[in-house]
Design a protein around this nucleic acid. Structure first.
Lengths: 242, 242
DNA sequence: TGGGATTTTACAATCTTTTTACAAATGGCT
DNA sequence: AGCCATTTGTAAAAAGATTGTAAAATCCCA
């Protein structure tokens, strides 16, 4: 289960380039893991895998002492085909290999590169997984479901309220709904709800959640003033009851 | 069709690319025939024809000594219209020719390309040609259709606006319209709209899309300032409503 | 080189999310 | 029961992020 953020792993032995990239990508809002050689990167990927927080994309320098970017690319592809890969390569024979062998990298950039170009390619590679003209919310199987006294359509980001009105859902509200629907009949702590809907690196206050629950109640309760489905468990958290 | 397997013919003179492609496609489970120039490829197709095992799809490099991919494409289309064709081309004038001439290729990919993208396009092309014998070619649904408060004529690349004026559509706008019309009532993410209208290897920013939506609104909304048909879903994307 | 199409830029406008502030409710305690 | 500290409800303000769009810059073909 990933956070909201996009995670990028860098494997690059040249420190100047590595830290430069890391800084630039952080500024762009990506979560960055920078590794100074291939084996460290390989290890980082495996560690991340165990914690279920795989990088979304890896930037691999082709020329590195020890495990090369080529090998790393193959390894990562073999074990985690869902991770996107961009190779950083010098012009010349190195580039030929990239083009010829096509190791399964999604793209490559030849050094020296302009930062703007790399950023553009990163965006493009990350975008490809979105598929063409598919609903914003993947999973065509995401069928509408009942939530409290309302009907939620996750593909359309909409809810039919008990009064029959059709209202739009914001992304945050939908995530919150999904957190509740996954655990009916169980009181959920504010922390775990924040974690589920906002991600583990959320630093806001807990009142944010209360506010959103209030909004949700207005949408899915017949009588929001005395909630039946989104119940307060004083001192514990909130509980969803079908 | 023939056996169970899908048969792909490659015509590409660069050995590195040819064998790389052949390997990659084999791994994907396709049956591959790799040819190093146009005349060998032409011969291979004819031999296959005699044995009743035509390729389902041909990947043709445009720049080849001897018979070019252009000629090959025309020949194959003439003799075996059921074979799908994807052209491999460099950017620039080569690409212009592909777009301009009525070669009848099902798709094209500009070199250098990412393997992932080519595979995606292969799947898409095969899906289309397998789907129905209906000619999914160029002018698929050539009939004018209603879009928002306007009437779009895809053949003439024109739109009759709500005010009754006849305006020209650019290719980009038309593709965007088609992406919307395929998913009414569902919010589409900026990413998937970019993929649909600009292609998956587009490196521009997402604001380009916003700009085009604004242009579209001026064409198809009665009151572009408060759109009814091309609706913004804040934080999600855009949604087309009939 | 000219003219349209496309893309980027920059700033304003809009919408969502978060925080704040205070009222109300709860539950432990005597 | 009554008191009090704590927790929760919620309107409204503030902060933050996203989107609208005109205008400038760039691209691209004829």
């Amino acid at each position: 289960m990933s956070d909201g953020g996009i995670r990028i792993l860098i494997a690059e032995d040249d420190e100047a380039i590595r830290t430069g990239l890391a800084d630039a990508l952080s500024v762009e809002g990506y979560e960055v893991v920078a590794c100074e050689d291939g084996s460290i990167a390989a290890k980082a990927v495996e560690d991340d895998a165990k914690r279920g927080r795989l990088p979304n994309l890896c930037l691999l320098d082709v020329m590195m002492p020890g495990i090369s970017g080529f090998d790393l690319c193959r390894n990562i592809r073999a074990g985690h085909p869902e991770i996107a890969i961009i190779l950083l390569t010098a012009k010349g024979s190195e580039l030929d290999k990239v083009l010829g062998l096509e190791l399964g990298a999604d793209d490559y950039v030849t050094k020296p590169f302009a930062l703007a170009e790399l950023l553009a390619r990163i965006r493009a590679v990350l975008r490809r997984s979105a598929g063409s003209a598919a609903p914003a919310r993947g999973a065509a199987s995401a069928k509408p479901f009942r939530f409290g006294a309302a009907e939620v359509d996750p593909v359309r980001y909409s809810v039919r309220t008990p009064s029959g009105a059709e209202e739009n859902l914001t992304p945050t509200l939908l995530k919150l709904i999904e957190a509740f629907i996954a655990n009916p009949g169980v009181p959920l702590s504010r922390d775990s709800l924040l974690n589920a809907a906002w991600g583990s690196s959320y630093y806001g206050t807990t009142r944010t959640l209360d506010q959103h629950v209030a909004i949700l109640r207005k949408l899915v309760e017949k009588n929001p003033a005395s909630p039946v489905h989104l119940v307060t468990r004083h001192g514990i958290g909130y509980e969803y009851r079908m």
